[in-house]
Computed example of a mutant assay.
Amino acid sequence: MAELVDDAVSQEGAPPADARAAGRTGPVPPWATFLAGMVAAVVGLAPWLAGGARLPLQNLWDGGIPAEAPVVLLPFSQYHVTSIFALLVVGGAVAGVAARALVALAGGRGPALWMGGGLLVGQVVAVVQTIAAVAPGLRDGRDSSVYLVGIGGGMVACLLISAGVFALVALAPPAGALLGLTTGAVAVGVWLPIVVVETSGPGSAPMGLLRAFTYVMPVLVGAAIAWAGVRTVGRVFSALVSLVLVWLAPPLTTAISAALGTRILARDLPGMLEYGAGVFRLAATDTALVGETLALAVAVAVAGLILREALGRRAAPAEQPA
């Protein structure tokens, strides 16, 4: 990953090292930046909250889920693992984009630190509240313990991914920021269907709209590649990794959902892994689906790079002294 560090030298408009070290917060007060980080966390959770935020079906609930299921800030369930990923990581990406803009204005890392703190507090509260609401209702036994630790551990892992995305997008040179933006784009591709399903109901979601959402992720990745550019080895490497994620991320999320959502394999970990691997191979080698999304990402990236180059050439003569 040494190439990513090399980009720091060539990053356009990078503030001086002493200014960055000063931790300036710029025109926005720290408390407002911290609050903005918490708002970003809520934005990520918004689709789930808009749907009522009621605890999903629990196979191990003691006595069965009551008619009025408890409110949880995250959908604690093996059937919603990819949703948990999206709800947390989208918040991290949104906060990262806002923090990067504020860092450029302030000339220091202060805004990113305050916004990251607000994001972390908001998302930690969501994870802790959800686990605290679920744990007392599960019936006693090993299965419940494994379930609680497994899904709870997955939530913590998604929380760490969100923090990593935020750090990359907010503070890393363009090559590193591109990787963060790509991960955020993958999360957005999962997040958008949640918006429709939670607000209109699983049976009422327009299939055409859900189909259209599959194109959002490659478009965002292509736009991110165009923004970062490909002028250095680090940026080229990040662009290639981003395209690999466009290829493999959707099959991976499909495989995870399929494997964890198959109740008959709940006590058969090897069988679950084998089934998930089979689904992944099938989806990853679907040339029609994979080729379509990859082609779209490449097309958007190439068009964006050409446009960026053209705008740069047009601006260059205007900047020369008369």
Results as ranks from 00 to 15, higher is better:
114 W>Y: 13
286 D>F: 01
195 V>H: 00
298 V>H: 03
163 A>F: 10
138 L>P: 06
138 L>C: 08
279 V>Y: 03
211 R>D: 15
245 L>G: 13
170 A>V: 06
137 G>D: 06
84 I>K: 02
201 G>S: 04
307 L>S: 11
270 P>Q: 04
170 A>G: 02
197 V>R: 13
215 Y>D: 03
153 G>S: 11
134 V>M: 08
67 A>W: 00
177 A>L: 11
319 E>T: 13
79 Y>A: 15
190 V>W: 03
204 S>T: 07
310 A>N: 06
218 P>D: 04
167 A>E: 12
144 S>N: 12
13 G>K: 02
277 A>Q: 09
30 P>L: 00
237 F>Y: 14
63 G>N: 09
148 L>D: 05
84 I>A: 11
75 P>W: 09
268 D>G: 07
41 A>I: 05
304 G>L: 14
257 S>K: 08
99 A>I: 04
315 A>W: 05
222 G>E: 02
258 A>C: 08
74 L>D: 01
86 A>F: 06
229 G>L: 12
196 V>P: 02
75 P>N: 05
254 T>V: 04
295 A>R: 12
31 W>Y: 12
196 V>A: 05
48 W>D: 02
109 R>E: 15
304 G>I: 14
12 E>S: 14
172 A>M: 06
212 A>F: 03
176 G>M: 08
212 A>Y: 00
302 V>G: 09
20 R>N: 03
62 D>A: 15
41 A>K: 02
9 V>T: 14
29 P>C: 05
163 A>H: 07
250 P>G: 12
295 A>Y: 00
158 C>W: 15
40 A>D: 04
70 P>H: 05
80 H>N: 10
70 P>G: 09
250 P>L: 09
104 A>W: 01
279 V>Q: 03
153 G>N: 11
222 G>T: 09
243 L>C: 09
184 G>M: 02
145 S>R: 15
14 A>L: 12
160 L>T: 04
255 A>G: 07
306 I>L: 15
146 V>K: 04
151 I>G: 10
292 E>H: 11
80 H>E: 13
189 G>H: 03
289 L>T: 14
114 W>I: 02
47 P>Y: 02
17 A>S: 10
154 G>P: 05
250 P>I: 06
